[in-house]
Simulated scan of single mutants.
Amino acid sequence: MKKGCLFDLDGTLVNSITDLALSTNEVLKLHHLPTHDISQYNMFVGNGVKKLMERALGPEHLDLLDVCLQDFQKIYREHCLDHTIPYDGIEELITYLKKQNIKLAVVTNKPHALAIQIVEHLFPDTFVAIYGQQDLYPVKPDPQSTYMALMEMRLDKKDCFFIGDSQVDIDTGYYADIDSIGVTWGFRGRQELENAGADYIVDNPYEIMELIQNENRG
């Protein structure tokens, strides 16, 4: 029986790619560097802000990494909710899970303060635990932040799903020994989820409701 769901944030609960891309491009402009099409950022995100900036800068400009990260934090903090909204069906899914007394958590590689800012604005009073990237623990797919969320939820790993849109999330579920659900509406698509070995793959949030119903019916 499933009693909890741990969600990735970007590409899973919310479509944040435009704000991430525009903020990163603004940093690149500040340093007179070429920018990237928004579509390219689908492959830049997922491993934390440092890796996002490394990919955007390219190997020839990594000497600017530290100052660009500082610039990004300032710019993105001001613009992280300009275009970022929940995916279609997510609010209905969250409402359903809460009615079923399913405990909810967010485990993301987005910086912790920004994760809290976005989650609490778009989903107030909803998640038992929110864990973003901090120096206290490694980024996903290391399972440490997931274990901390489980402790705060007071649930065993066998009682939960880990839900995300990329290999990083499926690997996190694997390393934490939690059943994983890959979502195809995010930044990476079905092929990456299949290659990563997701336990389940869904094409819309309503299929997660069905999975919960089937698990808890049997």
Score class of each variant (00 low, 15 high):
3 K>S: 12
3 K>M: 06
4 G>P: 06
7 F>V: 05
11 G>N: 05
14 V>A: 03
31 H>L: 15
34 P>T: 02
35 T>E: 14
37 D>K: 14
39 S>I: 10
39 S>R: 11
40 Q>N: 11
53 M>P: 06
59 P>Q: 09
60 E>T: 13
65 L>N: 10
67 V>H: 06
69 L>E: 10
69 L>T: 00
74 K>F: 12
74 K>N: 10
76 Y>R: 01
77 R>S: 14
80 C>N: 11
83 H>L: 02
85 I>N: 13
89 G>P: 09
90 I>S: 02
90 I>M: 04
90 I>V: 14
96 Y>T: 05
97 L>T: 02
99 K>R: 12
101 N>S: 14
102 I>N: 05
103 K>V: 09
104 L>P: 01
109 N>H: 08
114 L>M: 15
118 I>S: 02
121 H>Y: 07
121 H>E: 13
123 F>C: 07
129 A>V: 08
132 G>T: 07
134 Q>G: 03
136 L>H: 11
142 D>G: 08
143 P>N: 08
144 Q>M: 12
144 Q>T: 15
145 S>C: 11
147 Y>F: 13
149 A>I: 04
150 L>P: 03
152 E>S: 12
156 D>L: 11
161 F>A: 05
162 F>M: 15
164 G>R: 03
166 S>H: 10
169 D>V: 06
176 A>F: 07
185 W>P: 06
187 F>E: 01
189 G>D: 03
189 G>K: 05
198 A>W: 06
200 Y>G: 01
200 Y>P: 04
201 I>F: 11
209 M>F: 07
211 L>E: 05
212 I>L: 13
214 N>S: 13
215 E>P: 03
215 E>S: 15
216 N>P: 08
